[in-house]
Structures are given as structure tokens and as C-alpha cells.
Simulated assay, not measured.
Amino acid sequence: MTMQTYEKELTANDTGETGAHQAGIHIPKSQTDLLSFLPPLDPSTKNPDAWLEVKDDAGDVWRFRYIHYNNSLHDPGGTRDEFRITHMTGFFRSAGATAGDKLVLSGELGTWRYEISVRKAGDAPEAEPSEPVRIRLRGWQRVY
């Protein structure tokens, strides 16, 4: 299997620092690699979702909801057609995540098993024997 890693720089909205209510971390539809990394969701169903079981650095397992809000495909006047990962607030608080930190999501493609961590702003990523090449995606980055 192929191990993949994605990271996203967290915003104050992502971590709850603004006090605003946001329905999870947004995943742009243009991020086809990242969407393929996550379980498939059937767009013919209104707001299809899947629960992700994700292990953190301490070995704790968190449950996040991966959802495709898609009422624009099903309801007259519907406006939403976006992917999000929700139910992350407890994890962010536990990890002490703040704006500028990096959310790191890894796993083996097709297994639907994931690991998650927060890399604090300014911390260098752990170096592999050969330096990874980073490709900048909007909001999210895939780490090769």
C-alpha cells in the first residue's frame, strides 16, 4: 500500500479561536488527491458522510465526521456543495492547536485508517532520510 500524508495550516476559525461556529475543516473540491485518500461518498445521496477513526500521537483514537454537504445537488435553491471534516474541536483542544500550527493527516491509501497530529508553528517537520518534496495545494499540502 502507498502511505500518503497531507497537511493544512490551521486558521483561527479552524481551531475555534475566533469564537465563530464553523462546520469543520474545509476540503476544496479541487483537492482530488486528498478526496481520493478519504472514503468515497455517494453524491446521489443528500449530505453523504463517513466516520473516520483517527489515531493521534498518544495512541488515542478520535472519531471525525467526513461529510459532503451537497444540498445544491438535491434541493431547489440549495447552495452548498462542499466537503468538510467535522467533530474536531476536542482533538484541537487536546493538542493545544492554535492558528498557524499544521494539521497533519496520514494513512495508507485505500485502508481508511488514519493518523493525525498537530505540528506547532515554527517546528520543523521530522526529516526522512531524503528530504520530502512539498507540492503546494490551496489550503492543504500533500507531502511526498
Rank of each mutant, 00 (worst) to 15 (best):
G24N: 02
T86A: 14
N47W: 08
L103D: 03
L105A: 00
P39E: 05
P125I: 13
G107R: 02
L105W: 01
P132C: 03
T86H: 04
D56C: 06
V143S: 01
W140C: 04
A124C: 09
T79M: 10
G16Q: 01
T11I: 09
H68F: 15
T15N: 03
L41I: 10
G110T: 12
F91S: 01
G77P: 08
E108M: 02
A97Q: 01
G59W: 06
I116A: 10
R84H: 10
D14A: 02
Y69H: 15
N13D: 15
L103I: 04
G96K: 00
V104A: 00
T111D: 08
Q4L: 15
V54G: 00
R93W: 01
Y114V: 09
R119V: 15
L73M: 15
L109N: 05
S36T: 09
F37A: 07
D56V: 08
G139A: 10
N13M: 08
G100S: 03
F83R: 12
Y114S: 11
A95F: 00
A121H: 14
G19H: 05
S72R: 15
L41W: 08
W112K: 15
L41A: 11
Y66R: 06
P132H: 08
F92Q: 00
A50M: 00
P125T: 10
A23P: 04
Y144L: 14
P43V: 09
V133D: 05
A127C: 08
N47C: 02
E7Q: 14
D42K: 08
T18K: 06
D33V: 12
I27G: 05
I67E: 12
Q31F: 00
P132Y: 06
Q31N: 13
R93M: 02
L73A: 15
P132S: 11
G96S: 01
T111C: 05
D42F: 01
T15D: 02
G90Y: 02
K120S: 14
G16N: 06
A23L: 08
W51L: 12
D57M: 07
L34H: 07
A12Q: 11
L41D: 07
D14E: 07
R93D: 08
I116C: 09
R136I: 12
I67N: 07
W112N: 15
R80S: 14
W140S: 05
V118R: 11
R80L: 13
R119M: 12
Y6H: 11
R93E: 10
R138Q: 05
G107D: 04
T86S: 14
W140D: 05
R119W: 10
I27L: 14
E108G: 02
H68K: 12
N71E: 13
S30H: 04
H87K: 10
G59C: 06
S117E: 14
W112R: 15
R119N: 06
I116P: 06
P48E: 02
N47V: 01
V143M: 11
G59F: 02
